[in-house]
Amino acid sequence: MDSARREEILKGLSDAVVEYEEDAAREWAQKALDEGVDAFDAIMNGLAAGMEIVGDLYDRQEYFVPELLMCADALYAGMDILKPHIKKESVPQRGQVVIGTVQGDVHDIGKNIIKLMFDVGGFTVHDLGRDVPLENFVQEQLRTDSEIVAMSAMMTTTMMGMKKVIEMIKAKNPNVAIMLGGAPVTKDVADLFGADGYAESAGNAVQEAIKMISRLREMHKE
C-alpha cells in the first residue's frame, strides 16, 4: 500500500479516538485490515497516537474525565477489531501485569485507564477487578509470574492496604515492579511504600499512561 493511504488510515484512527467516535474507530480499523496496514502499526501509530493528542487536550483543560473515558472507549472499539490480527513478530514481548483496586475501594476508573495502557502496549493483563482482597494480588502474581503489579486506591482509607501487598510481594520476589495509582497516592507515599511508579488521579493516570505509550511507540519505531 502507498504511504499516503497508510497515513490517511492512521489519521482516521487517531481522529476517531480524539473525537470519541466509536463507530468511526471501528470503520477505520476495518479499513486498516482490509487494505493491509499492519494491525500493531494501526494500534500504536493510529489509536495510541490519538490518545497522545487526547493527553495534550487534557493538559490544556480542553478535555476532562468524561471525554477521556469516551476516547478510551473509541480506542477499545478500534482495538477489539485490530487485536486478533496482530502478528506475533510485530509485537515485542512485553510481559504480564496483575492489576486491580485494593479492598475497600470500589472505584476503578483510573485502574481501567491504566489497564488500557497495558493492553495497548501488548502486555498480558490479569485484571482482578475492584475491592480485591490484598492476598489475591500476591497469589495472582505468584500464579502468573507477572513482572508488574499495579494497584489503585481512590481513598486514603484504603491506601494502607497497598503497603502490605508490596511488602508481601517484595518478600517473595524483589524484582516485581509495583505501580500505584489513585487520588491519595503521592510521590512520598509511593516512595514510603517502596513502589516503583505512581499516578495520583484518573487524569494523571492517563498522562502517565500516555507517556508510557509514547515511550513504547518510540521503542517500536527503533
Binding site: G104, V106, D131, T157, T158, M160
Partner: peptide, 8 residues
C-alpha cells in the same frame, strides 16, 4: 485494617 464501608 480500618476500611470504610462501601457499596457492594
Amino acid at each position: 485494617d480500618i476500611l470504610y464501608p462501601t457499596v457492594p
